[in-house]
Write a protein that binds this DNA or RNA. Structure first.
Length: 491
RNA sequence: CGGGGAAUAGCGCAGCUUGGUAGCGCGCUACGUUCGGGACGUAGAGGUCCGGGGUUCAAAUCCCCGUUCCCCGACCA
C-alpha cells in the first residue's frame, strides 16, 4: 500500500474512497451497498448526533422509536409516497429457515411465509402517522414534536461510502400541528437548525431553498433543503425539511377537534439528516494528506506526540506530556496522548493528519529545555513554537481559528464556483469545466427541467426562498422566468 | 437491466501472450541499530492461484460451464 493518498486533483472519487478508508472512518461490508462504520468514524457520527439532538431538544422535540418493519399495506396509503419508494424497498417475506433434504444447506422454509409482507423502513412516515391517528384527538394533543434516531434501508442501484449506502443511519423528525402556519413554521425552524449546524459545527456553508416539484420528497407538499458545494464543484444535499400539508393526515385519517369544535385534518412535517453528513465533512475540507475535521466535531481535538531518544529523555517527556494532557483536559479539550513506543513520531504525525486531528503538540527534549512545545495546525500545517505558559491560550485561539479558517476556505470555494449564466451553451461549458452552483433562469416547467437533466446531468438543487433577481428568460426555452434557480451536478 | 473490466498471501498487484519449482511491494513476527515528518538492516511466517469440468506427461497459464466483485449508465438522502 502506498503511503500517501491519491491526489485530490487527479481523481476526486478515488481520493475520497481512499481517504474514508485510510482515515479509519468506514469500509464496505460483505453485503452489497452496505457500510461498516469503524470506531473512529462512528465517534464523529456520535458528535454529530449529540449536537443535533441537543438542538432538537432545545426546540421542544422528544425522541422516540418506531419499529424497523412496516406492513406493506401502510406504504401504499399515500399515492405519491409509494411511487417514490416502492422501487427501492427491501421486503421481508418469511420468518424461518430450515435445513434442506441433505441437511447441509439452510433454506427459507416455504411453510413460514408471512400473511402480509413487511417492508424494511425506507422512512417512517407511514408507521408513525398510523400511530398519530390514535394519539391525536384534540387540538390539546398538538403540536406533537417527535424525532427518532434510526437506520433505514433504500435498495439503491449504486452506492458510495457515506454518500449513498443501502442502509444508512439518520434522524427523522415527524411533527403534527393544528394549523398550516404552525407546520410551515416548524419546517423552516428545522431548516434553520440544519443550516446552523452545518455552518457553526461542520464549518460548511450552505444554501437554503425549496426543491422543484420533481425533486421534492414523495408525499410532501414542499421540500426545503440545505445544499453544500464540494471541492470538486458538485453539490451535496445535506439536509431536508418537508412540509407535508395534510397528505399523511388524509392517508391515515388523522383528525382532531379544533378549538371551535370542528373536525380537521392535522398538518404535518418531516425532516432528516443522515450519515451522508459524514461524506460532506470529508469532501468539504480534506486535502491530499487526509481528513481535516472541524474542531467541534473532532473526536480528538489535540494529539500529543512525544519525541525522545534515551530512556531518561522518555521519562521526562512522558511526564511533561501527561501534565499537558491534564491541563488541556481541564480546559475542556478532547486530548489524546499517544505514548506508544511501537510507532515513530513521524509515523504518528502522518497518522493523525490522515485522521484530521485539528491540533498536534510535539513534545521533545528540545522543548523541555526551553519550556515550550511545538504546536501544529492540521488545516494550514503551520508550526509554531509556543511557551508552556501560553499553551492553553494558544490552543484556544488555534481551535477557533481553524474553525473559521476552514469555513472561510469552503465559503471561498463556493463563491469562486458560483456563476450567473444566461446562455445554455455557456451553462453546458461551465458544467464540463469544474461545475459549481449555477444561477440561471428556468421557465418553471418540469419538461424543461427534465431536458436539462437529460442533456447535462445537472439538476435544480434549489429554488431560492427569496428570488435575488426579478424576471428573466429561461436559458433553454426563452420563456419567461420568475427568478433564477440554482443548478448543479450533484452527488 | 444494458456496456466494460477483474478474481493469485491480510491489503495492493505481477506472472497468463509462448503450459514446466508461486513472485513483488506494503503489512505481520523476531533481533539489532534508530526515533524532531510515514526509519533501516538481517532473519522469518504467511497460498485450495474464485468454483466445477476438459485438453495435456504437466495448467495460475489453453478450452468450456458457473459464481462473485468492481467501474460506466438508468434509480437516488
Amino acid at each position: 500500500m502506498e503511503k500517501g493518498l491519491p491526489k485530490r486533483s487527479d481523481d476526486y472519487s478515488q481520493w475520497y474512497n481512499e481517504l474514508v478508508k485510510r482515515a479509519d472512518l468506514a469500509e464496505n461490508s460483505p453485503v452489497r451497498g452496505c457500510m461498516i462504520i469503524k470506531p473512529y468514524g462512528f465517534s464523529i457520527w456520535e458528535k454529530i448526533q449529540a449536537t443535533l439532538d441537543g438542538m432538537f431538544k432545545e426546540t421542544g422535540h422528544s425522541n422516540c422509536y418506531f419499529p424497523i418493519f412496516i406492513p406493506k399495506s401502510y406504504l401504499s396509503r399515500e399515492a405519491a409516497h409509494v411511487e417514490g419508494f416502492a422501487k427501492e424497498c427491501a421486503v421481508v417475506t418469511h420468518y424461518r429457515l430450515k435445513n434442506d433434504a441433505t441437511g447441509r444447506n439452510l433454506i427459507v422454509d416455504p411453510e413460514a411465509k408471512l400473511e402480509e409482507e413487511l417492508i424494511v423502513r425506507p422512512t417512517s412516515e407511514t408507521i408513525i402517522w398510523n400511530s398519530y391517528k390514535n394519539w391525536i384527538q384534540s387540538y390539546r394533543d398538538l403540536p406533537l414534536l417527535l424525532n427518532q434516531w434510526a437506520n433505514v434501508v433504500r435498495w439503491e442501484m449504486r452506492t458510495r461510502l457515506f454518500l449513498r449506502t443501502s442502509e444508512f443511519l439518520w434522524q427523522e423528525g415527524h411533527t403534527a400541528h393544528a394549523t398550516m402556519k404552525e407546520a410551515e413554521e416548524e419546517t423552516f425552524r428545522i431548516l434553520d437548525v440544519y443550516a446552523e449546524f452545518a455552518e457553526k459545527h461542520m464549518a460548511i456553508p450552505v444554501l437554503r431553498g425549496r426543491k422543484s416539484e420533481s425533486e421534492k420528497f414523495a408525499g410532501a407538499v414542499n421540500t426545503y433543503c440545505i445544499e453544500a458545494l464540494m471541492q470538486d464543484g458538485k453539490a451535496l444535499q445535506a439536509g431536508t425539511s418537508h412540509f407535508l400539508g395534510q397528505n399523511f393526515a388524509r392517508a391515515f385519517d388523522v383528525k382532531f377537534t379544533s378549538r371551535e369544535g370542528k373536525q380537521e385534518f392535522v398538518w404535518g412535517t418531516s425532516w432528516g439528516v443522515s450519515t451522508r453528513l459524514m461524506g460532506a465533512l470529508v469532501m468539504a475540507h480534506s486535502d491530499d494528506d487526509g481528513l481535516v475535521l472541524p474542531p467541534q466535531l473532532a473526536p480528538i481535538q489535540v494529539v500529543i506526540v512525544p519525541i525522545y531518544k534515551t530512556p531518561d529523555q522518555a521519562a521526562r517527556v512522558m511526564e511533561k506530556a501527561q501534565q499537558v494532557k491534564k491541563h488541556l483536559e481541564s480546559k475542556g479539550y478532547r486530548v489524546h496522548f499517544d505514548s506508544r513506543d511501537t510507532q515513530t513520531p513521524g509515523w504518528k504525525f502522518a497518522e493523525y493528519e490522515m485522521k484530521g486531528v485539528p491540533l498536534r503538540i510535539a513534545l521533545g527534549p528540545r522543548d523541555l529545555e526551553s519550556d515550550s512545545a511545538e504546536l501544529t495546525r492540521r488545516d494550514t500545517k503551520e508550526k509554531r513554537k509556543v511557551s508552556m505558559a501560553k499553551l492553553s491560550e494558544e490552543v484556544d485561539q488555534s481551535i477557533q481559528s481553524i474553525h473559521s479558517g476552514i469555513y472561510r476556505k469552503a465559503l471561498k470555494n463556493r463563491e469562486d464556483n458560483t456563476f450567473y449564466i444566461d446562455n445554455y451553451d455557456e451553462f453546458k461549458a461551465r458544467l464540463d469545466s469544474g461545475g459549481g452552483f449555477i444561477y440561471a433562469h428556468w421557465d418553471g416547467s418540469p419538461e424543461t427541467e427534465a431536458r436539462i437533466k437529460e442533456e447535462t446531468k445537472a439538476t435544480i438543487r434549489l429554488i431560492p426562498l427569496t428570488p435575488d433577481e426579478k424576471e428573466g428568460k429561461c436559458i433553454v426555452t426563452g420563456k419567461p422566468s420568475r427568478g433564477r434557480v440554482v443548478f448543479a451536478r450533484a452527488y
